[in-house]
Amino acid sequence: MPKVGMPDIRKPQLVNATMAVINRVGLHAASISLISKEAGVSTGIINHYFGGKHGLLEETMREILRQLSSTIISQLKPIPVDAHQQRINAIINANFEGFQAESKVAKTWLAFWSYSMHDVDLNRLQRVNEKRLLSHLKIELKALLPKEQAEVVAHGIASLIDGIWLRGTLNPEGIDANKARLIINDYLDKQLTFYAKVSRFQGI
């Protein structure tokens, strides 16, 4: 976390510089020197406020997660609380549109995923993000499915989001948001249809 007193103008400047450098040269080659040069600041500022590259990477990921959370909330806000499938679609869309779909953000996410396997702080951020996504999905799915089935489908959708995101990041053409929605909605529709048939058969 940045130290108290970090000028607000500097944080987005350094976060954007970090993502730009990772996008250009990768995480391991993204040195404090390159990031400070990209941001137009001295290396001392980064070391002072973030304690080095690790602290800056953590703040960068926090900002990406904040942006994702904000996008999900803003997309859900105008949708009626009982329009559950529409709200699920909004959650899906938020993961593939706008800021999250930018090349520099996608490559930073990919670097973060690989790095978080070996870093306690970054792994914790990843777990928080995973739990937040599952929580959003389960709230809506529990209105459409029994609790146990809602849990399974929520994990299925989250897995599809991650998988499509990973494949899209590795694709030179980037993430195809329309195809992502089609794939995930096809899975969701099949799950809802299957349970509806089971319920009728069992007389539920």
Rank of each mutant, 00 (worst) to 15 (best):
G203Y: 00
A106P: 02
A111G: 10
I184V: 04
L192W: 06
L144T: 03
V120M: 07
M61F: 14
A196H: 14
V105C: 07
K131S: 15
L166E: 14
W109E: 05
S36T: 11
D121C: 09
H118A: 08
E140F: 04
A30K: 13
A101R: 02
K142C: 10
N129P: 03
A150Y: 01
L14G: 00
G40C: 05
N89W: 03
G44K: 10
K131V: 00
K179D: 12
N93K: 04
T60I: 02
S33F: 11
I73N: 05
L110V: 03
L182W: 15
E102N: 10
G156R: 02
P146S: 00
K3G: 04
Q202K: 15
I46H: 00
D186A: 15
S69P: 04
I73Q: 07
R132I: 13
S159C: 13
G5P: 08
N16L: 11
S36V: 05
E63G: 00
Q202R: 08
P12T: 15
L170N: 06
T169A: 15
T71V: 15
I9E: 04
W109V: 10
A83Q: 12
I139M: 01
A17D: 01
H48N: 12
A90N: 08
Y115L: 15
L57M: 14
F96N: 02
W113A: 11
E97A: 14
L110C: 08
I72C: 12
I184P: 03
H48S: 12
E102C: 02
I32G: 11
E58I: 14
L27G: 04
